[in-house]
Structures are given as C-alpha cells and as structure tokens.
Design a binder for these strands. Structure first.
Lengths: 196, 196
DNA sequence: CCTACCGATCGGTAGG
DNA sequence: CCTACCGATCGGTAGG
C-alpha cells in the first residue's frame, strides 16, 4: 500500500548499501542482522535478497569502491608534476575529504574489512599493502629531495593514515569545529610535522 | 587427565581474558563465539562460566582496565612540573608504549567499546570524553604559553590519539621497523608538528 | 514484495 | 571440569 517513494535516483541496491553502511558502522558488521537492515529499510528480511546476493556482498562492494577511490586518486596525483610535499598534502587532503563526506563507508573499509570473505579479503589486503607502499615511496622521494624531514617513511604513512582515519569520530562532535577548520588544522599539523 | 599447566601465576580468569582479547581483536567481539574462546583455551564452552560471568563482562573488564591505565598516567603527568610540551610528549609516549606492549586490549578499548552493555557503555564514553577534554586543555595551555603552535586543540588531540592508535597495525609488520625506532619517529613527527 | 520455514549457531543454564 | 540441553536468533531459501 503505502510505498516508500525513493528520494534519490539511485537503485534500490544503492539505498540498501547506504543504509547498511550506516548500521554496520554503528553496530558493527557482525552485530548487524539482515533483519535489522530490513527493518531500517522498511521491508521484511527475505525481500532484501531480491536486490543483493548476501550480507557479505554488501561489505565487499563497499570496501572495493572505497579502495579504488583512493587508488584512483593516488594514480592521478602520481601523474602530476607537483613537488613531493604538495603531493603528500593533496593525498592527505583527499583522505580528509573522503572521511568527511563518505565517512561511514570509509570507516568500514578501515575497520570492518576483516569480515570480508575470500578471495576478496586477500585482494583487499593486497591493495591496501600496495597503496601504503606507494605512499612510503613518495615519502622517501621527499626525504631524498630534502623536502621532507628524515623520518621513517613507514611511520609517516602510518601516522598520516591513522590520523585522518580518526576523523570518523568528528561526526559525533561537529559542534566543536567545522569541516574546513578541521581540514586546515590537521593538514597543518601533519604536513608541517614532516616538512623539512 | 592431561591438565594444562598454567605458565603464568595469574588466575584462570586472567588467562581467559588474555586469550579472549586476542580473539576479539582478530575476529571482532561479535564474531567471536564463546565456543571459539573455549576451544582456544582447551575446555568446553560451559566451563568458561565457572570463571567469568558473561561474554560482555570480559569486554567490560578490558575496557575498564585500559581506560583507568590512561587516566592514572594522565593524573600523574598532570601533577608534575614539566613544561607543557614535555607533558604532551610524555602522554604521547605512554600511548605508544601501551600500544606496543598491550595492543590487543588497547585495540579493543579503542574499537570494540560499542559492544559494551549499559551502564558500562555510558560510563566508558564519559571517561573517554573527559580524558580528551583534559588533553585538549593541556594543549590550549601550551598554546597560551607559546610552547605549542596555534592549532585547534581538538584537532591536536584527535590527531595524536588516532596516530598512536594506528600502531595496532604495526604488530603485523614488525620486520619493517623496531619498537624503539617506531616510537622515536612517531614522537618526532607529532611533537615537532605541534611545537612552536 | 510477502509468509513460511530451514539448519546452524548463538550465549548461557541445569545438574552432576 | 563435563554432558545435555534451552530458547533465541542467525543468514538465507522456497514458493507464490
């Protein structure tokens, strides 16, 4: 009878994914049941399977999309002629932006990837390791060109990625600081922390 | 018959907690069953209940202990006459040390606290908020005394705590860098990033 | 999209 | 410490 009118022009599957991301983030992937998800959407649990293949598939698609967003951005920045320190700043800014705009899905990609099934789990871990290696390589280039302090590249990458990941918690305390100030302050701390 | 000889002189409950921490960290709290835990210990699931009250209780005790470890350290440092920047460095070092030595339990306290039941959940969130407020206050003191750059105190606290939390992943890549180098490099990046 | 239902597994208890 | 077992809930399927 009272059908829910879709507000966005995405598919129903996209809507399910978005709501699932919110629930997975709030309650954790394992603690979120398909019945929780169905209720949040307004259907019975079995109806979900007309749009998705399985619970795991939702997580897979989220992790995949996020991973490729970061990889695409990195490739784009790598192809530029920017000084190393600016590349690092741009990468940092992209992470912050993603964390501000799409934080639920980025959070899942950061913290719930361990629930991925094979072979997606291995693929994801490879992409992740590869991404971090490429970042570390950029840092070492910067150290060599004297743009970056002689700090261990692994530590630089770990610190930057962890710091931006923490922005997840900012969404619960938005009154404290606005998105733009958050971005500029964090970029300043991190980039000045590594700039020689 | 073949009893397992306890190697440490802690109670059986302590042993259960330690193994539970490892499993909760690896598989997630919700995805770890009491049967998984029992198997890892070498007993049947119902036997666990001779030593613990419930699954939730294990997580509660872990989060409680870790939270109080950080609070105790903060109070100790607060009572000292150290310059502000040194206080911040000492706090950062304590976080790094905890993350290196007791990372499984610190990880749980960082990432699985949402599975705490009430009233522990509310208590924990209060402790957490309070701790961060105190840190932010120290940062603002440092800004006022011109020891610290004029960076938003919320962002400084968020960045430091997130960065040290990321050390969790270092335990899977220990060959890359040893604990001492990790510590000194991260302290340098973070503290030089905020020192005026 | 629904109702009806499946086998598996969950945290935990009873009782010895 | 165990065996036996509980009601609840899980992800998912059958069939319409």
């Amino acid at each position: 009878m009272a059908k829910i009118i879709p507000l966005k022009n995405g598919t129903k599957k996209d809507a399910i994914t978005a709501i699932a991301a919110r629930l997975f983030k709030e309650k954790g992937y394992s603690a979120t049941s398909m019945r929780d998800l169905a209720e949040a959407i307004g259907v019975e649990a079995p109806s979900l399977y007309n749009h998705i293949g399985s619970k795991k598939e939702i997580l897979q698609e989220i992790c995949n999309r996020i991973a490729h967003a970061f990889i695409t951005n990195l490739n784009h920045i790598q192809g530029s002629e920017d000084p190393i320190i600016l590349k690092l700043e741009k990468i940092t800014r992209f992470h912050i932006k993603m964390m501000i705009e799409d934080y639920e899905q980025v959070y899942l990609s950061d913290h719930e990837w361990k629930h991925l099934g094979e072979p997606f789990l291995s693929d994801f871990k490879n992409l992740r390791r590869n991404y971090r290696s490429q970042l570390a390589l950029i840092v070492r280039e910067g150290v060599k060109s004297l743009e970056v302090k002689d700090i261990d590249s692994y530590v630089v990458v770990l610190t930057i990625l962890s710091a931006v990941g923490g922005i997840e918690s900012w969404h619960r305390s938005k009154k404290t600081i606005d998105a733009n100030s958050l971005t500029e302050n964090m970029v300043r701390l991190l980039i000045e922390g590594i700039r020689r």
